[in-house]
């Protein structure tokens, strides 16, 4: 690969270009999840009968996944701290733990969905369940994408390359965590 263009190295706004782009990415994600959740909330308020379906979500599993993601967020920010000190190998290790939590999240999710589907709560079961699967599914897709990208960043960080990217993937990861922080009460707690 050729060297970076001069354009990439300029920072007129006082923020590194990569971080600026990640923040814009987060803006575009805010409106995607925002549109989805706004649609869900207005339906949920307009359809009191959905509470009957919502009663069947398992708050214990949802809670477990909340803790998994919160902890993975801690590991991501610790990786950023390590990268900030220039300690690439430690950052890579912590990113690996973060990826481990991501995999755990997906396993728990797989178990949860299997249970629910086998009880007949499929995506077509009712209005609530279709939003449940779409919202959690899009979120899980973000987890998968984030974990894959984090894998690449980890490989680079291990060789002390591009340590700035540890922070960038961390920002994205915290955002995915944030979405779950709101999905948890919306889908599991508020019945």
């Amino acid at each position: 690969m050729m060297g970076k263009p001069i354009a990439t190295t300029r920072t007129v706004m006082g923020v590194s270009t990569g971080k600026l782009a990640v923040w814009w990415l987060i803006v575009s994600e805010i409106v995607i999840f925002g549109g989805l959740l706004a649609s869900y909330v207005m339906h949920r308020i307009g359809h009191p009968e959905w509470a009957a379906s919502a009663a069947h979500t398992d708050v214990r599993i949802g809670g477990l996944n909340t803790m998994v993601l919160l902890t993975s967020s801690l590991m991501a920010v610790l990786a950023h701290a390590a990268a900030g000190r220039g300690d690439g190998p430690l950052a890579a290790k912590r990113l690996a733990v973060t990826i481990g939590f991501a995999v755990m999240f997906l396993c728990v999710k797989a178990y949860e969905w299997t249970t629910e589907i086998s009880h007949g709560y499929t995506i077509t079961a009712s209005g609530f369940w279709q939003f449940y699967y779409v919202a959690a599914g899009i979120h899980a897709a973000h987890i998968i994408a984030g974990a894959i990208i984090m894998g690449f960043v980890m490989m680079q960080a291990r060789r002390n390359h591009e340590l700035g990217r540890v922070e960038l993937i961390g920002l994205y990861w915290h955002f995915v965590d944030l979405v779950w922080i709101f999905l948890f009460p919306l889908l599991y707690i508020a019945k």
Binding site: L20, V27, I30, A38, V41, H43, G46
Partner: peptide, 25 residues
């Protein structure tokens, strides 16, 4: 400006919610 642009996105979503909710709810 970083938080301003994020807040703007949130404001637009709130706008969407409150101007659509009368029809859907």
């Amino acid at each position: 400006f970083i938080w301003q642009m994020n807040a703007t996105a949130l404001v637009f979503i709130l706008l969407f919610f409150f101007w659509v909710a009368p029809d859907v709810m």
